[in-house]
Write a protein that binds this DNA or RNA. Structure first.
Length: 424
RNA sequence: GGAGAGGUGGCGGAGUGGUCGAUCGCGUCGGUCUCGAAAACCGAAGUAGGUGCAAGCCUACCGUGGGUUCGAAUCCCACCCUCUCCGCCA
């Protein structure tokens, strides 16, 4: 949600900023709706002032037993209220906010121009592929013999689900546990267990609603399955006035994520790359506005640690204007190299949302040198997607015989298993 | 699911139709006192919107949304949440 004062102060700059996302000018319309609101507020408040004054006089008149005066004043109040009845500030405010709620965040100045992922800028590449004298297989080719079962999942739930069995199921659990432990023990995040079902207000706060309803699964009682733990974690501060000293807040959670994948029919249909349900470790930071840029770098580095320690080949990409998400001002994607697929695939996305979500959530903090309340910044990042990490581990560490050598860091979580071996 | 109780400012807790944005206590901040502190005393302090150069003034907000009334924290209705008991259940 944008600060109406910013738009008022410089509508042309606002439109120019939105145009980077390919959007037409909208500031004039926003201001028109806001002016209607202000006008309605003036009319309503003037009538209320009259009512309050006369009501006091009515009370005095009745106490004095002067019912004639009281009745006359009552008629006067009624006339004043009737005259103002057509002014509906709430309706106008709702109209203005409904429009504002559909406008994406303004981009950071350093975000490169561009329309899609081909315009993203690679900033760093880490690791290199080992030499192999065999053609690496894709994860689902390896997976079949290791306990990856798509047929059973399809029977149970349909397409875009996976059943894991045996050591492979344990590997998924190990990845999640290890990532969580890493962020808690090494990176200063607080582990959280969160609701996987949330209400409209939470989805609105982080920006999934009202625009992206079709990406979500809803429940019969009006709740939503979370598409990422970013939603519950970030909404921790919704409606709160935080103490400045409590910042930054660093929260992490391992959770299942549910996405309808509407609009991606036919994409990545094989394997477990794109699922309706997947596990992810999420990182969320709530920071002082001046600290968010540095926090963004720090958070991304935390996610990068995961990939590096798993021995994966990865790169960091700064998303271009057209590829940066609705709520984000600036986003780094971490892409992992999948040797079986011979492609870079997103495994983490780290965004600085600045005050965009915080305004939607009406989260604020009180500066120590207390004057006006300020709006904190929110950031979120995958640290990292567990399902895709599992894929990357399989494809990266596969051997010619179809076995997979597990990264050292996971072995304590695997009960001594060092190698996944295909079942004959 | 059934029955009951309750949701008021950072916290506790008054207030059941007329200057109530709200008594009071605790906590917080500033000051007096003190070598310093404590205690005591004095004072300040909510959020949002409108208006104004500003000081300030005005409006709304006592879980949320409606309603009654000249006037609602107070009365009525619906919903949400919390607590207690019963039932069911991982």
């Amino acid at each position: 949600m944008h600060d109406i004062r910013v738009i008022r102060a410089n509508p042309a700059a606002f439109d120019a900023a939105l145009s980077r996302r390919g959007l037409p000018p909208i500031a004039a319309e926003v201001l028109r709706l806001d002016e209607q609101r202000v006008e309605a507020v003036r009319i309503t408040q003037a009538a209320q002032t009259t009512r309050n004054e006369l009501s006091r006089q009515i009370g005095a008149a009745m106490k004095a037993g002067d019912s004639a005066t009281a009745e006359r004043l009552k008629a006067e109040v009624k006339a004043a209220l009737d005259a103002a009845a057509a002014a509906t500030p709430d309706v106008h405010e709702a109209a203005r906010d409904a429009l504002l709620a559909t406008l994406p965040n303004l981009l950071d100045g350093q975000v490169p121009d561009g329309v899609d992922e081909t315009d993203n800028v690679v900033q760093h590449v880490q690791g290199s592929q080992p030499n192999r004298d065999f053609t690496p297989r894709q994860h689902f080719e390896l997976g079949e013999a290791l306990g990856m079962d798509f047929a059973t999942a399809a029977k149970l739930a349909g397409a875009r689900f996976t059943v894991l069995r045996g050591p492979l199921a344990r590997l998924e659990r190990a990845l999640g546990q290890w990532m969580l432990d890493l962020h808690v023990e090494q990176h200063g995040y607080t582990e959280c267990a969160v609701p996987l079902l949330v209400n409209d207000d939470s989805m609105y706060g982080t920006g999934q609603l009202p625009k992206f309803k079709e990406d979500l699964f809803g429940t019969t009682d009006g709740r939503w399955l979370i598409p990422t733990a970013e939603v519950p974690l970030t909404n921790f501060v919704r409606g709160e006035i935080l103490a400045e000293a409590s910042l930054p807040l660093r929260l992490t959670a391992l959770s299942p994520c549910f996405r309808s994948e509407a609009g991606s029919a036919g994409r990545d249909t094989r394997g477990m790359l794109r699922q309706h349900q997947f596990a992810k470790v999420e990182l969320v930071s709530i920071t002082h506005p001046e600290a968010s840029a540095a926090e963004h770098e720090r958070m991304t580095a935390c996610a990068e640690q995961v990939l590096t320690r798993l021995g994966l080949v990865w790169r960091r990409v700064l998303l271009c204007a057209g590829d940066t998400g609705f709520g984000a001002a600036r986003t780094y994607d971490l892409e992992v190299w999948l040797p079986g697929q011979q492609a870079w695939r997103e495994i983490s996305s780290c965004s600085n949302c600045r005050d965009f979500q915080a305004r939607r959530m009406e989260a604020r903090f009180r500066p120590a040198e207390a004057k006006a309340l300020e709006v904190p910044h929110t950031l979120n990042g995958s640290g990292v997607a567990v399902g895709r990490a599992l894929i990357a581990v399989l494809e990266t560490h596969q051997q010619e015989d179809g076995s997979v050598i597990l990264p050292e860091v996971l072995r304590p979580y695997m009960g001594g298993i060092e190698v996944l071996r295909p079942a004959a």
